[in-house]
């Protein structure tokens, strides 16, 4: 019998791979600075989704901390980039 979850995992791996690729394109091409920061933010959120998916596939809880740390670092780096673009300085 076909395992439904494995099938869904395969489909979603494909979706996430394509979306990471599109985000990467925007990161390289994006004409303005804000677009590049947004692409980096989206890239880290997609990476969190991918790590959680790998955790589901491996039936393990070990990858949870990695996902949490990448989510936090993604937010902090977005704020740091925006502060730098707004003020020319990160910590004043």
């Amino acid at each position: 019998m076909i395992d439904l979850i494995d099938l869904a995992l395969l489909f979603t791996y494909g979706c996430l791979g394509v979306s990471l690729l599109l985000t990467m394109l925007r990161l390289i091409a994006g004409p303005t600075l804000g677009d590049r920061v947004l692409a980096l933010d989206t890239l880290s959120i997609n990476a969190v989704a991918l790590i959680v998916l790998i955790g589901i596939a491996g039936r393990t809880q070990l990858l949870f901390e990695a996902a949490l740390i990448i989510a936090m670092l993604g937010f902090v780096s977005t704020v740091a980039y925006c502060r730098f673009a707004l003020r020319g300085d990160i910590i004043e």
Binding site: A8, F11, T12, G14, C15, L16, V18, S19, L20, L22, T23, R26, L38, A39, T42, N46, A49
Partner: peptide
């Protein structure tokens, strides 16, 4: 997966 893909296509 579909929502993530839609977000990136919109981007």
């Amino acid at each position: 997966g579909v929502f993530t893909l839609v977000g990136s296509i919109g981007l």
